[in-house]
Write a protein that binds this DNA or RNA. Structure first.
Length: 242
DNA sequence: GCGACAG
DNA sequence: ATCTTGTCGC
């Protein structure tokens, strides 16, 4: 691995300008991090009535064992029973290796392409990963949120940054996820006695709204239904591609 | 300096 | 993320 990690067209040709469009690889790690720092202040937190939401999209990506192929999936579910009403998938090659903190540069491009193929516009999108619970306060859910200018939240299975007290055992209890003295997310128990999930703001939603919606989206299982559906679909799509 | 580190 | 079966419990 070298400075221009994983870049195919960085050998030989003239250096590409680092224009910084969301969804494009900025050229190297330093530029990618600088882009996140520059975009982080653009994240907006707005109240969203979780009970009024009717169309929610879940986003996820699956990889082949050798990391040569990926399948991105978006599934749109409708309230109140979260039935699938639309979906789209994209099969592609990973353009960048997994680097903690730069996860979005790997997953956002194929996910955004899949979203573009939907016929149904969701009210909110849920990413498998984090939003502002990120070293530079700009995780995958923020990348997707700013790119689409839509409400987006992130739900992760393990904490990335910060720490939280274990929430009480009953479903619905939560504790703040704190990093560097800042509340960057919510540690939320979606199932009694089961390991909690970590919810954070992506864009155009505030943390209480994101927490409420995440809980409403997970009436039965630990993970929100949109993420479960997207996870299932991208695995199926990957298997079909291979 | 060392370890940890979303998926 | 992915490699992987059965098993215990509600």
């Amino acid at each position: 691995m070298n400075g221009a990690i994983g870049m195919d067209d960085s050998e030989g040709g003239p250096a590409r300008p680092a224009e910084g469009r969301i969804g494009e690889w900025p050229g190297d790690v330093a530029r990618a991090e600088a882009l996140q720092q520059r975009l982080a202040p653009l994240v907006r937190e707005e109240h969203l009535d979780a009970d009024a939401v009717s169309l929610v999209a879940g986003l996820d990506v699956a990889y082949s064992a050798d990391d040569d192929v990926l399948a991105a999936a978006v599934v749109v579910l409708a309230a109140p029973d979260w039935r699938t009403v639309d979906s789209a998938t994209v099969v592609a090659q990973p353009r960048f290796p997994y680097v903690p903190g730069l996860f979005a540069f790997r997953e956002a491009p194929p996910l955004l392409e899949a979203v573009a193929r939907l016929e149904t516009a969701p009210d909110v999108l849920v990413c498998d990963g984090f939003g502002v619970a990120h070293p530079r306060r700009f995780g995958l859910a923020c990348h997707v949120g700013l790119a689409l200018d839509r409400p987006v939240l992130g739900v992760g299975k393990t904490p990335f940054v910060g720490s939280a007290q274990p929430p009480a055992a009953e479903r619905g209890s939560w504790s703040p996820l704190v990093d560097g003295g800042e509340v960057v997310g919510r540690c939320l128990r979606t199932r009694a006695g089961v390991k909690p999930v970590y919810v954070s703001v992506g864009h155009r939603v505030d943390l209480p709204s994101a927490g409420d919606l995440a809980l409403r989206l997970a009436p039965q299982y630990r993970l929100p239904e949109p993420i479960r559906s997207a996870d299932r679909l991208c695995r199926e799509r990957l298997a079909a591609a291979a």
